[in-house]
Write a protein that binds this DNA or RNA. Structure first.
Lengths: 206, 206
DNA sequence: CTAGCACCCTAACAATCGTTAGGCTACTGT
DNA sequence: ACAGTAGCCTAACGATTGTTAGGGTGCTAG
């Protein structure tokens, strides 16, 4: 019932500071004592809020996972053209990166840790479902002839994911989400989608 | 004088295996004993080839740095139009990523470690010089009106670098360098560079 | 043959890791 | 007033870390 707002929610402070440190230095390289220092407390006191270092990492990642899963579920159920769905997914991913930047950096940086933690099975399951949505959407956009044929044969999902995740390291004031959407969409879309005169719908690359 | 080719160059094997492990799990998370296991030797035996873990990391990164520095120096001295120089730099970066993928992943993943290691001052100095070349080239391309005005106000260098470095995680068979160049250049270049028709003045491949 | 070095080993070091045990303080509900 | 507990502390645990000491084997030069 309590969880005072004005006072101090130390648990949230621990989550925030540890997320920042994990993202900057890596999970293994960040010791519990360094996290405690950043929060103005003692290493052992962290265990009053979290049972283990793994649980602390998991709490950070689960927050972000819940957010992005909600966004993707809405996009999955919306009636959208393939390219519009693709743009919506890119924007959702970048929105999640904006709100949970540290969590995203931890997720894509310490992938070995994420894959091994027993507390993250649900996060991993969600990631599989998200990948399937990406693949289905990209396949639909390719089938509609809206993707440059150059990218028909490669794993465009992984390319887009890596490109988007990499921007989590850029602070918000350096590059806007619109800039990134602009680069990615203009980079992969077929030159003149439907009206133009001179574009054959597809061409297997040589 | 020796360094037998057919026999076994254990030092190179240590470099290769440790680079792979550092890139996958992170420097701090990879212990000397794990590296030794991967090389079929004992942890203490690694110190016959490298004086410390830091020196091992540095040896990996210096190799890659020497390669990319050579490429950039040649590009700096070549008489190129801004956009062509930009494309050459992107290709050089991606070439380095292809040849020294693990080193590149270590460099951009464990940045805190790179910034703190006393054995990497030369690598850091080179990085500063490379960044200056990037900025000068991008500024020239903007001044020539070849960059979409959307990107005139942001740090396009950092955006491009993050986007390129992120592709180091994609194995070569998933995405080719040409694909990435295509996405990036088409994403940032101004729509119709100079003339009115629809043919860019030059483009090597097709 | 012998000295010397390259190469690798076992054993152990001090330091640091995540974590636990147990106690102190301050607030809360009854 | 008093028990309970949330929140934090000090102190220490066993395990693991990077690293060192010192010895053994086998090749090679003289």
């Amino acid at each position: 019932m309590s969880q005072g707002t004005g006072r101090a929610n130390k648990r949230d402070a621990v989550l925030r500071e540890s997320a920042r440190l994990f993202a900057e230095r890596g999970v293994e390289a960040t010791t519990m004592r360094v996290i405690a220092d950043a929060c103005g407390m003692q290493a052992a006191s962290l265990y009053h809020h979290f049972a283990s270092k793994d649980e602390l990492v998991a709490a950070i990642l689960v927050r972000s996972d819940a957010h992005i899963t909600g966004l993707y579920d809405a996009i999955r159920d919306a009636p959208l053209e393939p390219v519009d769905r693709l743009e919506a997914m890119i924007r959702a991913t970048l929105d999640n990166l904006g709100h949970y930047r540290d969590a995203a950096r931890i997720y894509y940086r310490d992938r070995a840790h994420v894959a091994a933690s027993p507390l993250l099975t649900q996060v991993r399951d969600h990631a599989v479902a998200h990948d399937e949505l990406w693949d289905r959407t990209i396949d639909a956009a390719i089938a509609a002839g809206r993707i440059s044929p150059r990218f028909a044969a490669i794993s465009l999902r992984r390319l887009l994911q890596e490109l988007m995740w990499s921007t989590a390291r850029l602070r918000g004031d350096a590059v806007s989400a619109d800039d990134i959407v602009h680069v990615l969409l203009r980079g992969i879309l077929a030159p003149e989608p439907e009206l133009g005169r001179d574009e054959p719908p597809r061409r297997p690359e040589s």
